[in-house]
Amino acid sequence: MARILVLYYSSYGHIAAMAEAVAEGVREAGHDCEIRHVPETAPKEVAEAAGFRKMEGHRQIDGPEELADFDGIVVGAPTRFGRMPSQMAAFWDRAGGLWASGKLIGKVGAAFTSTAAQHGGQETTLFSILTNLLHMGMTIVGLDYGYGEQNGVDEVKGGAPYGATTIAGGDGSRMPSEADLGGARYLGRRVAETAARLAG
């Protein structure tokens, strides 16, 4: 049985919902999954003024060294000008010792994100996450086209071959659709299955 970590940062609940769906996919495939969030680094007054939602219901990760305890890590964060936000970047900036030790080499990694618009930097944000995982020596799993629901233009939907995504809308009122959540579940399942095969 593979042990998978879903590590995320969420400002308004979109990524938290996607994290739950990724975990569902892992568990539905018969594997163990834990969800953790990185620390909020924005000043309290800034977070309150912007209406940030607290990441309740999931434990905050203590530090990068915890990552070595898992067979696979699925990282989720919203976009910030086409890249991961400072909260997630700050966490990975503390991972130099983990990189030096090589403890993540060969483990499975994947990414998911949320943007306000369909062309708001989904793929570049995914790549900004995946770049860190590749530097750690991880084997990357994307949202392959076995998940056909990411195709088509009949409705607004997320999804990219590089990871699961959702679109929040300019005012953040659009929560992940069933197609978006399905992509997150599919990604979680593929990560768990791949990690189990590599560990076997």
Rank of each mutant, 00 (worst) to 15 (best):
N132H: 12
R83L: 05
V156F: 03
L181T: 05
A192D: 12
M84N: 06
M1L: 01
I105M: 09
G182I: 01
A95T: 09
G158R: 03
V46W: 12
I167H: 00
L187H: 06
I35G: 03
R185A: 07
H31N: 10
E28N: 11
L104I: 07
G97K: 14
H58Y: 15
G163R: 08
I105H: 04
G13N: 12
R83A: 10
A16M: 03
M1K: 09
K54V: 00
M175Q: 15
H14E: 00
D69Q: 11
G158V: 01
R197Q: 09
T139N: 14
G25R: 11
G76C: 09
D62R: 15
G163K: 07
V141S: 08
L98V: 13
N151S: 15
G25L: 07
D180G: 05
R189G: 13
R3Y: 14
E20K: 09
M138L: 03
E28G: 04
L5W: 08
L7C: 10
A42S: 13
K107D: 09
G63P: 05
K103C: 00
M138S: 07
L126W: 06
R185N: 07
P176C: 03
A16Y: 06
S173G: 04
A21I: 06
I129R: 06
E45C: 03
T139K: 07
S173C: 01
F112L: 01
A68E: 15
A42D: 10
G172Q: 08
L198F: 08
A95D: 09
P78V: 11
E34N: 01
A89H: 05
I105R: 13
Q60V: 07
I105P: 00
Q60E: 15
Y9E: 04
A164T: 01
M18L: 14
A29W: 12
A168F: 02
S86A: 13
F81N: 13
M18T: 01
G121A: 06
Y145H: 08
T125F: 00
M55S: 10
L181Q: 10
G158A: 04
I15Y: 07
G109Q: 12
A116T: 05
P78M: 08
I167Y: 00
T139I: 09
Q118R: 13
E48D: 13
G51R: 06
V156A: 08
A2V: 02
G13I: 07
G188N: 15
G188Q: 14
H14L: 01
G137Y: 06
Y12A: 11
A77E: 12
F127I: 10
N151A: 13
P176F: 05
G82C: 05
G170I: 00
A89Q: 12
P43K: 07
L181Y: 01
T113P: 05
T194H: 05
